[in-house]
């Protein structure tokens, strides 16, 4: 199980982005972290994966524990070895490498070659289209295929926890549903835990077991996915926004501000 205990994150030593975030991600479950632009979702994932330090950010308060051991302060490759992997938003594949080479690179922390081979086979069973494209340069894959490759590549290190950063971004709804369906299968069959970051709250709450809502660096709501989906604030600010997809009227904005103050 992953646990964030009241962590604070600063960039450049001065810009405070996370202001006391506590999250738990139990084994074998899907937990979602919802929030709007700039709320601090990606920063939370980077704090966990240790990538933060390469961006001049650091966890300056609180602690991050995985299976009872403290992991904040470890290098990213050590965190991968312990079984946590982050799949970046915007499906960043190694575009000049072939599909299969991307997978080989993803399995870098696996020592024996047989393990890598098995990993590749596992990825191909969940994403058969990647097998068809195995020797194609990945920069030329479609957006959906690239997202599948990014997730598959993340599976190569045989993680216990996969963190997905906005996998639905820029994908057609049908493709997103397809990918979410595969994620659910992975959780059920491979006993992987997932921390899913999304702006698309409707879809995320359908998939997840448990959820958190983050706003300007603070967790403002927490609950089972079902209860969050029923929550009137979530409905109004996240679900409503996504269903209509249009800009809100001035009146809505004003109410939103008022509610937001109340939430935080």
């Amino acid at each position: 199980m992953l646990a964030l205990n009241n962590i604070e994150v600063v960039y450049d030593g001065v810009i405070l982005v996370l202001k006391g975030v506590s999250i738990e991600v139990p084994d074998g479950r899907i937990t979602t972290l919802l929030g709007g632009n700039g709320a601090g979702k990606t920063t939370t994932l980077k704090a966990i994966s240790g990538i933060l330090r390469a961006e001049r950010g650091e966890v300056c308060k609180g602690s991050i524990q995985f299976d009872g051991e403290r992991i904040d302060g470890l290098a990213p490759h050590d965190i991968v070895k312990r079984g946590i992997v982050q799949v970046f938003e915007g499906r960043r594949v190694f575009e000049h490498l072939t599909v299969e080479e991307n997978l080989v690179a993803g399995g870098h922390s696996v020592v024996d070659l047989r393990g890598v081979r098995q990993g590749i086979d596992l990825v191909y069973t969940y994403f058969p289209v990647l097998k068809e494209r195995r020797s194609q340069q990945s920069g030329y894959l479609s957006g959906g295929e690239q997202q599948m490759l990014a997730i598959g590549r993340g599976l190569m290190s045989r993680p216990k926890l996969v963190m997905l950063d906005e996998p639905s971004l820029g994908l057609a709804p049908m493709l997103t549903e397809e990918i979410f369906r595969i994620v659910r299968q992975l959780v059920e069959k491979e006993r992987i835990a997932v921390l899913l970051v999304e702006q698309n709250a409707a879809l995320a709450l359908e998939l997840a077991d448990h959820g958190y809502v983050i706003e300007t660096g603070r967790i403002v709501l927490e609950g089972s996915a079902a209860s969050l989906a029923q929550n009137s604030d979530v409905k109004e600010f996240y679900l409503g926004l996504n269903e209509v997809g249009s800009r809100k009227s001035y009146r809505d904005t004003k109410r939103y501000r008022r509610r937001k103050r109340w939430l935080s």
Binding site: I51, F88, R92, F94, E95, L97, E101, A105, H108
Partner: peptide, 23 residues
């Protein structure tokens, strides 16, 4: 070689390579 692939991955995108467990 696997090391060669990892090296090309680093060349392609350092941050993602790091997240994939490549030192």
């Amino acid at each position: 070689s696997r090391m060669g692939v990892a090296m090309r991955a680093v060349a392609d995108n350092q941050q993602v390579a790091m997240a994939m467990g490549i030192n």
